[in-house]
Amino acid sequence: MRNIGIKCLLICVMFSSLYSVKSDLELGFYEKSCPDAEKIIYDYVKKHIPNVPSLAAALLRMHFHDCFVRGCDASVLLSSTSNNKAEKSASPNQSLRGFDFLDRVKSLVEAECPGVVSCADIIALVARDSVVAIGGPYWNVPTGRRDGLISKSSEASRELPAPTSNFSALQASFASKGLNLLDLVILSGAHTIGVSHCQSFSNRLYNFTGKGDEDPSLDGVYAMNLKEKKCRTPKDMTTIVEMDPGSFRTFDLGYYKHLLQRRGLFQSDAALMSNAATKSAIIQLLHNPLEVFFKEFALSMEKMGSIEVKTGSTGEIRKHCAVINS
């Protein structure tokens, strides 16, 4: 049992061991083939993320979106071709940011060790180092991932949990990737940093059941504030809103505090409060020091980063992250 001590999740965590992710990844995979690879990545992230701290959330989200479709294989970085609509073009991915940042990191690593370090490993390492750069938790990133050859928009639309997901949909989505309810709660905590566009949750404000109504699970004062100061029309496509108001640049417990106040921005956030086990987990997190959340987040991120990885001779090491090697 993990240290959080949530009795109501004990059965879930025990059963999750049956689906624990196993892979051939290893710490220090590039120690001989490209010994400076991780330092090059870390140094670049450490230098630039403090200047654009909002990018940390975007790069963490990129890692999540990559791993939930075909596993952590950088398929999210591939561009569409005349014959194929790639994951990038799927609706959930059209708001992703950080592609140029990852390309710059890749070019530095390629200059040092051509054709050695995968784009999939770069995503995983950059996500971790970016979170650390803004004062968030550190987690182990075993490496050795290889890059996938397939990227389909339809799969991204189907596999990625939507901000409108209810609890059953979230549970099924995470379970399909070998992640349990505790992982769901902990990984949702990534919403403590970053922003969202109004269009991702405006239905909760203006048309929750298709009758021009408001989501009753959303705090009325918070909803009114969003409508009057942020998302003034149902079709607002440009305004951005903090997912953790007041501390959206700080990796803390603010997100969970807002959930208890019925002020989670997405329907998928509110869904965590609709289940006794996940609600209890949230309360337990808030009764523990921040370090407990950091430790649990590290465990769940390492688990997520190993989903359906390609290793050995599967896939390839792309020269450019947006295109398959010719």
Rank of each mutant, 00 (worst) to 15 (best):
Q261H: 11
Y256T: 00
S23L: 04
V309Y: 14
H197E: 13
M301H: 10
S168E: 14
T238L: 14
K39R: 15
L10M: 07
F251D: 09
M273V: 08
L78M: 06
S313C: 05
D213Y: 01
I150D: 00
L10P: 00
V13Q: 11
R146P: 02
M304H: 06
S157A: 15
H320E: 11
I283Y: 08
F208E: 02
P245I: 09
S89V: 13
G189C: 04
Y42S: 12
A74C: 06
S118W: 15
L60K: 05
L125F: 09
A37C: 05
I240N: 14
R145V: 08
I283S: 12
Y256V: 03
V69E: 06
D100L: 10
R158E: 09
T164A: 15
N288V: 01
H258L: 12
I123C: 07
V195H: 11
E159Y: 12
N288R: 15
I240Q: 15
L259C: 12
Q171H: 11
L160V: 01
R158I: 00
H287S: 13
G220T: 11
D36C: 02
D36P: 00
P216Q: 10
H191C: 05
I40F: 13
G312K: 11
A298S: 14
L285R: 00
V52T: 14
L18G: 02
G71F: 03
E228R: 15
A190M: 07
M273I: 00
N207V: 00
D147M: 09
D244V: 07
Y30D: 04
C8Q: 13
T311I: 08
K230P: 01
